[in-house]
């Protein structure tokens, strides 16, 4: 088994009186693609937002390579954030910027690379993701699939060690969905990142993931391999997988 990289330990999160996560505990491992599955609106994206630091747990702990996030200095957190990238469900592309600027922004604003090097890196990633020729277009001028690829390019440009995908296939047709899954899997092999994917694309997501965590009723009810989940006799899992 690979080295544990992220661990949720009894994490509780509520928004007002709405309890979303109730003492959830599970782990993600280096170099693996972990899929978080579950019904819509159950708190899958909330888990991802805790990893990237957009949300903080009410109680419990998130550990990065064994070190609690709450005990880290701001500088360490900053360094850690540099290792992570997040691909939003709605892409979160900057609509008043061109595709080139959207992809380049993590480097132009948060790194000290010279401009010519940034240009080279952007061109390189655009070529790898078949995005050539659309540098000067705006996100609104692109198809849904292209927007996804631009968002992926932006997430990959910093060569992250951990990449978080929030429902990367939402709004795509079945063919594009398969393509997106294959793309994530291929790029995971190519770039060697650790991936966490929030998805409800069952069973497609099992083909590209090494680990599955299923959330239901505010708790993690399953943690294991895709094979183990398909063999599970848990009634909620059986019902979820059969639909």
């Amino acid at each position: 088994m690979n080295k544990e990289i992220i661990r949720f330990k009894n994490v509780v999160k509520s928004f007002g009186s709405n309890l979303v996560l109730d003492k959830i505990s599970f782990s993600m491992f280096k170099g693996e693609l972990t899929a978080i599955i579950g019904k819509s609106g159950i708190g899958k994206s909330v888990i991802l937002k805790h990893i990237i630091g957009l949300l903080r747990p009410d109680s419990g702990e998130i550990l990065f390579e064994g070190e609690p996030l709450s005990c880290m200095s701001e500088k360490t957190k900053h360094q850690l954030k540099k290792k992570c990238s997040y691909m939003f469900q709605g892409n979160a592309l900057f609509d008043s910027m061109t595709v080139f600027d959207n992809i380049a922004i993590p480097l132009t604003e948060a790194s000290r690379f010279p401009l010519f090097e940034i240009k080279k890196k952007v061109e390189n990633i655009m070529e790898k993701l078949d995005l050539e020729g659309i540098e000067s277009r705006y996100p609104a001028q692109l198809s849904g699939g292209m927007q996804k690829r631009v968002a992926l390019a932006r997430a990959l440009i910093t060569e992250p060690e951990i990449l978080l995908f929030d429902e990367p296939t939402t709004g795509l047709d079945p063919i594009r969905k398969k393509e997106a899954h294959r793309m994530i899997s291929d790029y995971k092999d190519k770039f060697g990142f650790t991936g966490v994917v929030v998805s409800h694309e069952i069973p497609d997501i099992f083909e590209i993931s090494q680990r599955i965590a299923m959330i239901d009723n505010k708790k993690i009810i399953f943690e294991g391999t895709p094979q183990e989940i398909t063999e599970s006799v848990h009634p909620v899992i059986i019902e979820f997988l059969s639909k």
Binding site: I52, G53, K81, K82, Y86, D95, I105, P106, E109
Partner: peptide
Amino acid sequence: MRNSEQIDALKTMNI
């Protein structure tokens, strides 16, 4: 920008 998560996106990029 807030509603379309662009502000959150900046935070995730350390900006």
